[in-house]
Design a protein around this nucleic acid. Structure first.
Length: 236
DNA sequence: AACAGAGCCAACCGCGGCGCG
DNA sequence: ACGCGCCGCGGTTGGCTCTGT
């Protein structure tokens, strides 16, 4: 599983020190690099008062030499309430695998199904853990070796079933579907756009079409956080 | 103890969509 | 209808820690 998140705190201290030095040297220019505790606090205060929208004005009100984009990212990935800082659990990992199989690199959508997890975190986790593991399996499979653990089985099962259910009109569906996962507490606010269907759409042409209930798919109202039953509903 | 390479993650960048004037 | 600015997304990078030699 995901190793040592405990080092995060240590890391933060290190970054605070280095970024304070950066701030001193780059007054007036837009500040980039690691956020300091002071910046975090200011940002959180302004958002508490004005809400998490109009990022440009938030940046101005907070008096930070940061662009709105940077403030938004910091809030969504770090300061937002209900963010989970712990290891990705097996259950979450399984969910990520399934969702990635289904959705491709739509990290924000995947994050929308994992309360407390950010798209950035999932993306990082995928890039550093799961993608490697999967490519290893692909290798194994192509050289005649059999996959050996749970996720291998899950992926292939999901693959078959998803393929059976979904056809070739993925782009159409994703182009049409809109979702607002902000209805789920503590998750990334996202709006799926048509761009999403193309940009990250590497190797996932095989899903979509058909009778998939998009509204149902993104209806988070009746679920426990990691209940996988809903996935089965759409895959099986 | 010192160094190099790998791993990890926060943050930045570039692009495209949307809304508004 | 058009242009502009803002926002959100996915991809990429920079820098730190860990691990092996």
């Amino acid at each position: 599983m995901a190793p040592k998140r405990e080092e995060c705190a240590k890391r933060e201290v290190m970054k605070m020190k280095s970024s304070e030095a950066v701030m001193k040297n780059t007054k007036r220019e837009v500040n980039k690099g690691a956020w300091t505790a002071g910046e975090d606090q200011k940002l959180a205060e302004v958002i508490a008062i004005h809400g998490a929208k109009k990022w440009k004005s938030i940046a101005a009100k907070a008096g930070l030499n940061r662009c709105g984009k940077s403030c938004r990212l910091r809030w969504l990935n770090y300061l937002r309430p209900n963010i989970k800082r712990g290891n990705i659990s097996d259950q979450e990992e399984d969910l990520i695998l399934r969702l990635h199989k289904l959705l491709g690199n739509r990290w924000s959508l995947i994050a929308g199904r994992l309360p407390g997890r950010t798209d950035n975190e999932i993306k990082n986790y995928w890039n550093s853990h799961l993608s490697k593991r999967i490519s290893q399996r692909e290798k194994q499979r192509s050289t005649g070796g059999a996959g050996d653990d749970d996720s291998t089985i899950q992926i292939s099962t999901v693959d078959q079933k998803a393929s059976a259910q979904f056809g070739d009109e993925q782009k159409k569906i994703y182009g049409e579907m809109k979702q607002d996962s902000s209805s789920e507490e503590g998750t990334t606010t996202t709006t799926t756009t048509t761009s999403a269907s193309n940009k990250g759409g590497d190797d996932h042409e095989h899903y979509s079409n058909s009778d998939i209930d998009i509204d149902g798919f993104f209806d988070f109202s009746n679920e426990g956080p990691f209940n996988l039953e809903w996935v089965n509903e759409f895959l099986y």
